[in-house]
Simulated scan of single mutants.
Amino acid sequence: MEAFWAQGYEATSMRDLVDATGVNRASLYATYGDKRELFLTAFRKYDEKVRQRTLDELSKNLAPADAIRAIFDKFIGQTCQPGGNWGCLMANTALELAAHDAEIARMVNQAQDSIKAFFLTMIRKGQASGDFNSGGDAEVFARQALAAFLGFLVMIRSRPDAGYLGAVRDSVLASFR
């Protein structure tokens, strides 16, 4: 998963996958059939173990504004680590593969729908508590937050500047108030 996440699908060779897993090439082929199937397995693992678990934990443990801030901060924190600007495997996959692979596009769309649902839940909770503008349309805010977040995830790879990314995060939060 980490090899695909760091390098992308096309740039990750079978040699990279052998090195990353410690499993020989023949065993990888015997288990997964081909590189695409191994990628799909890694993507599903990422979706379940990283993306969904993160959203669940944030929505259960933090106030709405804090949860939204935290999802952005999780990625901003990567930019401070050497070689840490991997971005998001889902967003990277959307850019690299979704336009050319219907199955991957479906998986990416499901992940994006889940992220939008996270934003919608947090925005509605924030509106109910008075932290966010209760006069605004939560559905519209959630779509805007998703679009901003996906753009933010692209910038993680191309412009890993924590100050700039923090300003993007802050403008998203300000738009709900």
Rank of each mutant, 00 (worst) to 15 (best):
Q127M: 03
D56N: 08
F75T: 00
T54L: 11
P64S: 10
E139T: 14
T121M: 11
T79N: 06
N61C: 11
R44L: 02
N61G: 15
S114P: 03
F132Q: 02
G84C: 06
D73T: 15
E96D: 05
Q110E: 13
A91Y: 03
N109R: 13
V140P: 04
E139H: 15
K74S: 05
T41Q: 12
C80Y: 04
A42D: 06
W86M: 05
N85R: 01
R69H: 06
R124W: 11
I68P: 00
T41V: 00
G83P: 00
R51F: 03
F132K: 05
E37K: 07
Q52Y: 15
A99L: 08
N109H: 14
M90L: 11
L89D: 01
I71H: 14
G130N: 10
D113R: 11
N92Q: 13
P82F: 00
Q52R: 14
S134N: 12
H100P: 02
R69S: 09
L40A: 01
Y46E: 09
E48N: 08
Q52M: 08
I104M: 01
C80W: 05
E96F: 02
N85A: 11
G84T: 07
W86A: 10
I115N: 00
G135T: 14
M90Q: 12
Q110T: 04
D47Q: 14
